[in-house]
Amino acid sequence: MNAPLALLLALIVSLPATAGAAAPAHQLYAAVAMTKAQKNSSTPTDSGLYTRAPDGQWTHFGPRALGVTSIVVQPGSVGRVILIGCSDGVVRSADGGKTWRKTTGWEVADVRALAFDGQNSSDAYAATCWGPLRSTDGGATWALAQTGLPKLYCQTLVTDPRQPGRVLLGTEDGIYLSTDAAKTWSRTASPAACILRLARSAADPQVLVAATLARGAWLSCDNGDSWSATDSASAAANLYAAAIDPANGAHLALGGWAVGVRISADGGKTWTDRSAGLPVKNIFVLSFDPDVHGRLWASTFEEGTFFSDDLGATWHDGGLYGAYGFDLTFLPVTR
C-alpha cells in the first residue's frame, strides 16, 4: 500500500463513528499530566483536564492546576456543579466552569477520585492519598470520613446508583464498604491489596471489577460484598485500569503496567490480550464510550490515547501524546 493511501485510510478509520450522526450525549474529559517532555524538572510541562471536540482536538478545560485526576458533575445540576480533584484538593465550579473555587482546606491533598452519591446528589465523596472525604452540600464543603479505616490511603471509589449512601472504597488494604454515606466503613471480603481502580457495571450494577497492585483483577457479582480473582494471566500484575461496557455488561477491560489491554467478552470467564497496535503496554486508564457502543478508550503512559471499536482488535490514535493519564470520563452534555 502506498503511503498517501495508507494515510487516507488511517484518517478514515480514525474518524469517530458518530461523525455525521446525532450529537453525542456525552463529552469526553481526560485528566492528564504532560510528563513525556519533563526533563530535569519535578513538574510536568502541562497538566489538567482536556476535553475532546468532535474533530478530535483536545482543549484544556478548568483550572490549570497540577495533579488533576478526576472530574464529576453533580446529577441534576444541568452541568453547573462540577468537581475536580487535584493535588491541591477539591476544586468546584457552580456555574458550569466559568469560575472555580477550592473547597478544601490545607488538610486535604492529593485527591485521586471523586463521585456523587447514586441517589442523593447533595452527597459527594472523595478518595485521597490521605484518606476519604465526604460532602453533604454538593462539594461546597468537606469533612474527613475515616471512621473504621485502619489505613487511610485510597485512590478509587464507586457509588451505587440504586442505594443512597452506599459507597465502595479502594484502599491500601482492600475494599471497604459504607452504607451510611461514608460516615463509617467496614471491610469487604476483598483481597489484601492496594486497590488501584474500581469499576461498576452500568448494565448490571451488581457487577464490579477491581484492579490491584500486584494482585491482579478481582470480580464481584454481589454488589461488592465478596470478590474473586479473575484473569489468571495478570494475577500478579499491577493493574491500574478497569472498565465495563455500559452497553454490554459481559465486556470487561483491564489494563496495567507491562500488561497492555486485556479484554473479556464473557463476563470475566476468559481473557485475551488486546495490546497489538498499541505503542506500549503500559496502560493507566480504560473507559467505554457510552455514546458509541463498544468503543473502548485507553490511555497509555506518555505514548498517547487510543480508541478501539472492536474490543481492542484494532486501535486508533486518539491524541494526547506525551500524557500520563489518570482518568477518562464521559460527562453528560448540557444542552
Binding site: T35, K39, N40, S41, S42, R112
Partner: peptide
C-alpha cells in the same frame, strides 16, 4: 509520594537524576 508504583521512580529521576 502520591504517584503510581511503576512510574514513581522514573518521575523522581526526572528531576533527581
Amino acid at each position: 509520594f502520591g504517584g503510581d508504583w511503576d512510574t514513581v521512580t522514573d518521575l523522581i529521576a526526572r528531576s533527581k537524576a
